[in-house]
Design a protein around this nucleic acid. Sequence first.
RNA 1: GGCUGGGUAGCUCAGUUGGUUAGAGCACACGACUCAUAAUCGUGGGGUCGGGAGUUCAAAUCUCCCCCCCGCCA
Length: 572
Amino acid sequence: MARILITSAIPYINGIKHLGNLVGSQLPADLFARYKRGRGDEVMFICATDEHGTPAELAAAKAGKPVAAYCAEMHEVQAEIAKGFRLSFDHFGRSSSQRNHKLTQAFAGKLAENGLIREVSEKMIYSIDDGRFLPDRYVEGTCPNCGYDSARGDQCDNCTKQLDPTDLINPRSTISGSTNLEERETKHLYLMQRSLKDKLEAWIDSKTDWPVLTTSIAKKWLNDGDGLQDRGITRDLHWGIPVKKGDQPWPGMEGKVFYVWFDAPIEYIAGTAEWADANGKADADWERWWRTDKGAADVTYYQFMGKDNVPFHTLSFPATILGSGEPWKMVDYLKSFNYLNYDGGQFSTSRGRGVFMDQALSILPSDYWRWWLLSHAPESSDAEFTWENFQASVNKDLADVLGNFVSRVTKFAKSKLGDVVPAGGDYGPEEAALIADLGARIRAYEACMDAIEVRKAAAELRAIWVIGNEYLQAAAPWSAIKTDPARAEAMIRLSLNLIRVYAILSRPFIPDAAQAMMEAMGSSDWTWPGDVPEALRALPPGHAFTVPENLFRKITDEERADWQLRFAGKRD
RNA sequence: GGCUGGGUAGCUCAGUUGGUUAGAGCACACGACUCAUAAUCGUGGGGUCGGGAGUUCAAAUCUCCCCCCCGCCA
């Protein structure tokens, strides 16, 4: 039994994510976790909310709440929605947890001990009225280059010139609009990534099986221009992890916190510790997933994320781990995704364009979304969501091909042969052919899933569903029952068994429908069909089954038109 | 401006190291079936593989130039 560690990029605490965010990290991670569990592997699947930083503080202020309370509340909201999408995290943690505080401080302490931290004094813009230092993009003013009056502190959107906030003429805070700003000297810690460049490069070069999208981004950051740069890992904020050297104070850094991108990936580890705490486990129980000196040497670690997260996971976080000099588990396979576009444009949080996770669940059950999103995952390039495509896929694949198969088999069986698996006849050549065909298809499906080829796996699964309809059409039990009832009974016995196998194979994609199929077959045996002939005899003659409600309903043209209009983008 | 990825049937996408008439699903047409959610199964039509030039016995696949789209960086 293999041991599989899986983490999904952790969603930012500020607001509800859209379907593009979902399909880029959490959903495919869940698919893989469910598949590996289904195969009998030992899986640890961790996700969390990313809670620190200026945007969280501002969102809390806007909501009129203390930031800690705001984050606690939003964490619950995101946790509920994750449950709604059946995301099967072993733990959904919080980057603001005490576990992460301790661990982040411990990493910083180790890095300092190893001479990889340097202190830098720099001038930053301080807003007296806001009572805070302003990150570059929160300062606006007139561009010294082109005179554009809404240039941001990091760049002028008009002439695209790269700026320093102190270059701006008549600078103002975008938070309050205040012009009561001044430059203040402040001290920050920098992680000396340049000293780790060779180690990082060697590590990345050893990952020959990673997607080009992943390695090309990493190499570009390593080698472009002046190469990998040292990175500030602290900020002048109130909300965050206080800067400490292990459990000791850090002289001169009082009142400062770690930068959100420093502590966020460490939460993968801390989240596993939170899992242990929440389940009454010992430290050894989470350490066996993360410490190669404490049992994690045989763990295979997979990360899932959108392409915008790749630099942090191929360079910054590995720099933290390598720099610590401690035997932490590093990622073995990094699966990155492109973006999902919405109906010819981008999803837009600010303009409310596209479907957000809460809205999606309010109009259709999660399986519908899971199926479409995963079968159209943006793997090789950016992908496109359209309502026409969504309607067509759901209606055809889920309702007509799979749902109708379950319906036609169970209804025929019940009305013609009774409430239990019929006993007559035995499997003949047609059944043997089906079993052989199915076996080959299942192996292809497994290969795609093992390689995390999400779209191809979905296509294989669909083909497996089609096999059932092809068989029924050719075998025609509705004819056989008139002339050779025993043959018809054997056909139906096989078909009912097929439904149970479909439940097992489909569970990673559509867990609720899979559950309904399994329950209708009166079984709870989720054993992966490694031996197909045996799996198709799992429900013996005389075994009771029921006719389930229709697994999926169809999306009407009216609904489609309505939703298209509703999500076109007006949300405040 | 630099870089990644992409531009293949009406739509969403596959096309391994260049090699027989370029594939799948949907949509469309025709046929079969009638157990089933007007579902299913079969057959078929449909593409100068973004444009141009080149290498080769042979290019969607390699080289060069150009044009678009998403994104990242500067």
